[in-house]
Nucleic acid binder design. Structure first.
Length: 232
DNA sequence: TTGATGATTCGCT
DNA sequence: GCGAATCATCAAT
């Protein structure tokens, strides 16, 4: 009767890790694994690029102008998925941070597929493996994420959409001994070195804060584009 | 109601 | 490099 869960509680990222401001949480999400289980199968990616949005103090955040029907999940407790639809055709997924009442989130911008590659390829007609989840909308397409997952809990084993703690040697990061320097964060997870930061992609206001984080050297990281006004 | 815009991607030149 | 695709959302009528 009882089915064995695909993930145990110990594998998943503890909600307490997410119960902090987005800009603090964001770099810690690099190297974590996002997985989505559907009737078609499971696809999992290692996160290689993320962006923080700090709620009501951040003019680039969807939560800047207060709570609405769309962004309601961001005002809830940490550890849930905020999925939104944009440009008439794309979905993007965020990890909600901070306790209920405070809106803060991290946009998952890119990842490297480590499981279910066949299924991911079927969902995305694309030639190269690196482009499967290179970009926030591509990542959602590869994983089959849409608005039905808005509000999904990422921190419980029974959820279809889950966030796992970092696995060692999943991304092309050298062993700890060869990295030198700043060892604290690196040692904790085994692969937290080589994190680069810069301004967020495609935002008009708030382009001055370096709240985009990525694993330096990862080919799956999307390219930077500054904001440009759209022609009418 | 209406109108502008967007945390993007893809295809064509 | 440039423009189209395409529609939910929100601020302004």
């Amino acid at each position: 009767m009882v089915e064995a869960p695909s993930a145990t509680t110990a594998d998943l990222l503890p909600r307490t890790v997410l119960d902090r401001p987005g800009p603090k949480v964001a770099p810690d999400l690099l190297g974590c694994v996002l997985e989505h289980e559907t009737a078609d199968g499971l696809v999992a990616v290692v996160l290689t690029e993320v962006e923080a949005y700090d709620g009501q103090t951040d003019p680039a955040s969807h939560a800047y102008r207060g709570r609405t029907a769309r962004n309601a999940v961001m005002f809830g407790p940490a550890g849930y998925a905020y999925v939104y639809f944009t440009y008439g055709m794309h979905f993007c997924v965020n990890v909600v941070c901070m306790p209920a009442g405070t809106a803060s989130a991290v946009l998952l911008r890119a990842g490297k597929v480590i499981a279910g590659e066949d299924l991911a390829r079927r969902r995305r007609s694309v030639r190269s493996e690196r482009d499967l989840a290179r970009g926030p909308a591509r990542l959602c397409q590869a994983l089959g994420i849409d608005r039905r997952l808005d509000g999904a809990d990422l921190c419980v084993p029974g959820s279809p959409l889950r966030l796992r703690a970092p696995l060692p040697a999943q991304v092309g990061v050298p062993p700890a001994g060869e990295r030198g320097g700043g060892a604290d964060a690196a040692n904790r997870s085994g692969q937290k070195a080589l994190i680069a930061t810069g301004p967020r992609v495609g935002v008009r206001e708030g382009a001055d804060v370096p709240w985009r984080f990525w694993l330096d050297g990862e080919p799956t990281v999307s390219v930077y584009r500054p904001w440009v006004p759209r022609r009418r």
